[in-house]
Every structure is written in structure tokens, then in C-alpha cells.
Design a protein around this nucleic acid. Sequence first.
DNA 1: TCTTACTATGCAACGAGTTGCACAGCAACG
DNA 2: CGTTGCTGTGCAACTCGTTGCATAGTAAGA
Lengths: 181, 181
Amino acid sequence: MALEHAILVSLLEQPGSGYELARRFERSIGRFWTATHQQIYRVLKRMESDGLVLAEEIGQDGRPDKRRFTATGPGRDVLAEWLRAPVQPEAVRHELAVKIRGAAFTDDAGRTGLIGEVERYRAEHEALLYTYINGEKRDFPDLDGLDVGQRLQHVVLKGGIAYERMLLDWLDDVLDTLRAL
Amino acid sequence: MALEHAILVSLLEQPGSGYELARRFERSIGRFWTATHQQIYRVLKRMESDGLVLAEEIGQDGRPDKRRFTATGPGRDVLAEWLRAPVQPEAVRHELAVKIRGAAFTDDAGRTGLIGEVERYRAEHEALLYTYINGEKRDFPDLDGLDVGQRLQHVVLKGGIAYERMLLDWLDDVLDTLRAL
DNA sequence: TCTTACTATGCAACGAGTTGCACAGCAACG
DNA sequence: CGTTGCTGTGCAACTCGTTGCATAGTAAGA
């Protein structure tokens, strides 16, 4: 259960409320770890009772109060311990690959439909690639003079960019194959 | 729940017992969809009662009997319907990326440990890449004269190869960054 | 004014996946 | 003879993640 650790990293980078965390998971962190707000609140509650995070109540005008979370010393320790542990072999769930192999067992209409789906999927990931590239230009305009945290954030972002480029090339290959059947 | 569909694809490619399916999920299919035998038996049971697969008892000498499963007509229909449905946006869970960003909040010893972990991870994926490349040479020596199913299996395998190559390049980038901190 | 969208938190039920264990017989090795 | 490993099937408990819903106030636009 690494959601706990992803939350710790995010809170160490910047303390924030459950709501703010949920928004970060939609954007930056969500590129490599997704979570809904329901999940985040549930885990935050457990982390609070375990002493990994500390909440302070912040009253706001015109809006509901919020609870701003910060990682504690024990929270840092738990994170450090997790960093030392082996990377778990990830559970691969590549739906599109299953569908492509499944295309051998459908008719022409089914294959045409799948080609349309792959095209849509490709367009989505192309847009994502441009989002990443724009984010790189915006957040890392000067590659010298980055601090430790920024250099690490940047190398992770470069991983996302490399993945999307690879995926787009492969999807072109897939489309050629499907069209040539 | 696409495990059902991954099982249908696998059974259409080749009927087999729960045990055989589990072994396939460890190898070929497992490259893009992982599942344990417990999960497979449970889902097979449900699929059987839903009429998506048919079991025939096969007595064996010197071994326990086995139940050989085949996809039925309704099974094919369910698969065809799923192929027409949009590809679900996948839930990204990239533990290593979280750890890399977490490295900003640990000490030198923690970073050294992480570097070792990344190296181990890299070695694993390098071995996987060679497994894929050898599999490609073995199973697709002649790229002309492949049937529909083989061409689709090959393009999926090429995706795995492209992914591993991209990953290795990125991990080298990560290692350079971690070492330079 | 009504609807939509945003901030902010949370519960309840369900479904899927993981982990641990169990049974059963055979084959091969030391 | 005991251990390990393979074939073959399965249950039970647990954790994790998803989906749907609820509350509550503010702000902006049709």
C-alpha cells in the first residue's frame, strides 16, 4: 500500500488539505500514482491516528474550514524505511494489449471499431505528451540551478515524456498492423 | 474487470485447464495482464456458471484429473462486445517514481540504498528485455507468412520490447541524476 | 433564478486482488 | 526415506480501490 507513501512525499514537498492533495493527485502526482479523494481522506485518517501526519484546523471566510496536513518525524521515518525496501514488481494491467490480441477473434466490423478506439486512445496520449512538454518548459526553463527536489521531479517528468513518445510510436505500429489485416 | 476477457482471449488462442492458464499468465499473457491461480479459478467458476466457458473433464493417469476449458459462443460475444467498448484510462501505479521523488527527503545513506535498488531493478528489466528479444527470434523467425493471430501477438510483443528499451534508457538517466545529487 | 462549478469533507457498499493455507498424487534427487 | 518440485484444484480472510451518495456554503453565468 504505497498510497500512504505517495501522500507523505506530496506533503513533504508541500503541506496541504485532503482536498488539495486530491487535486495534486489529479495533476502532478497522478502521473505516476492515481487516487480519488475518498481514498485519500480514508488513508489520511489512518495516517493521522498512526501519527504519520499532523492536522491543523484552519478557519476560512466564506468557505468550509479545512484541515491542513503536515508530515511528522515518524512520517519521515516511515518514508525513509520504505525507500530502503525493494521496489515491488509491478502488476501489469495493459488492457489495450489484451484487446489487440483479442482482435484475432472478432469480425471486420469489430476490428474497424477497435481501430477507431486505438486512434482515440492515441490522440489522448498525444495531448498528454504535449501537456508534459509544456509543463517541462514552464517548470524547468533553466536546467542548471535546480535544487535537489526539482532535479528529481524533472527526471520523473522526463520518464513520463519518454513513455508517451514510446507509446505513440508503438500505437502507430499497432494501427498499421490492424489496418493491414 | 478485464481478467474475464484476458481469459477468453487466452482460451480462444488455445483451450486449457485452470492450471495451464495460470502458467500462461506467468509467461506470455502475464506480460500485459497478471493474475494468480486463485483468481483464475474463481473467475473461471463464475464464467462457467455464466456460460462463457465450457469445461470438460479429462482423466489422466498418474495425475489428478483436469478440467479443460473452452470459450463458448456467448463467450465470444462477450469478448466482441468488450472490444467495441472504449479502452478504460489505466490506473497508473509507478512505485519507483514515487520513491525517486521521495529521495529528496532522505539522507545520503538512504539515497545510496535507493541507487542500489534502482540498479537491481534495471538488471531485472534488462534480463526481461533479452527474454522478449529471444522470444521474438524463436516465435517469429519469419515475419512474412504470419497468420492474423501471430501478427497481433507479434505487435504486442514489440510493444513490450519498446517499453523495456525506453525504461532502461530512463533508468540510466535516473541513476545519473541520483549519483550527481 | 436556476444551474453549474468549485471548495471541503466524509460514509457505505461493493468488487477486485492478494495472501495464506489446504488437499492430492507423482517424480526425481540426495 | 525424506525433501523438493510439479501438476491440479480450491477456500477463507483480508486489503485495497471504485462507485454512489451526502452535506454545506460560495460564486459565476445563462
